[in-house]
Simulated assay, not measured.
Amino acid sequence: MPTSQDMTTDLDHGLLDALQHQVAVFARRAEQTRLGGTGQLRNSMDRAAYLLLNRLDQEGPMGVKALAAGMGIDSSTVTRQVAPLVDTGLVKRTSHPEDGRAVVLQLSPRGQARLEEVRSSRRELMAQVTDGWTEAERESFCTLLTRFNSALSARQAGLPPAEREADRETETAPAS
């Protein structure tokens, strides 16, 4: 079985250099624009807030530990990132229905409305940025970007390459 080093030497170094450069440029541009959307809502919600609200919307109410595990980050990070969302009324803390001592985080109606505003603005941005692309090109880009993000996540989680490859077959892009 070839090692990671063997695979790197077998691949075209020029292509890998171009890929890492384009990823670096993408990361810089994404951070500069924060892929925030268009119009009044441009740059209106930071990445952490968007990802937390989106996760709560997609998966429903959950505790800090479950939210942290699902996002692949530390519980203390989630606690720190959720605090301003609670303070601004986008997320509410409630008691767990089965264990009143446990706290559950839930998207508030205000948070749901705000998330939809931001999603709508970001959809418009994606439409503008990919104007002139075919539907197949958009789908292909989304599939490859999802696969790339999943591979990075699996690598960060310490999964061996064989498991990373197996996970690829179950990947789906998040619904919006």
Rank of each mutant, 00 (worst) to 15 (best):
A30H: 14
D74F: 00
L53A: 05
R122E: 05
V82I: 15
A151W: 05
R147Q: 13
T143Q: 09
V25R: 01
L53S: 07
G100L: 14
A127K: 08
S108D: 06
Q32M: 06
S150A: 15
A30W: 15
R29L: 15
M45K: 04
L52F: 04
A30L: 15
H96V: 01
L51G: 12
V86P: 02
A69K: 05
M62I: 01
Q128V: 02
S108V: 06
L144P: 00
L125V: 02
A48Q: 12
E31F: 15
A68G: 03
D131T: 06
N43W: 05
R47D: 14
S140N: 13
R55S: 12
V64A: 04
D99S: 10
T38S: 03
R114M: 11
G132C: 08
D131M: 04
V104A: 11
R28N: 05
T79M: 07
Q112Y: 02
G72P: 01
S121W: 06
V129C: 02
T143D: 11
A102H: 13
T146M: 03
P97T: 09
F26E: 11
L53N: 06
R123A: 13
V64Q: 13
V118I: 15
L152K: 01
Q106G: 06
L125H: 03
R28S: 05
R34H: 10
R110M: 10
R155Q: 08
L145K: 06
L67N: 02
A83T: 14
R93M: 13
S150I: 01
L52H: 02
L115G: 05
Q40V: 15
V64R: 10
N43S: 12
G37K: 02
T134H: 06
V104Y: 05
G132H: 08
E135Q: 12
C142Y: 03
R155N: 04
A69L: 02
E116Q: 14
A102I: 07
L35Y: 10
L115K: 06
A66T: 11
T94W: 02
K92V: 15
Y50W: 12
R55Y: 08
V104H: 12
R34S: 14
R155V: 03
D46I: 07
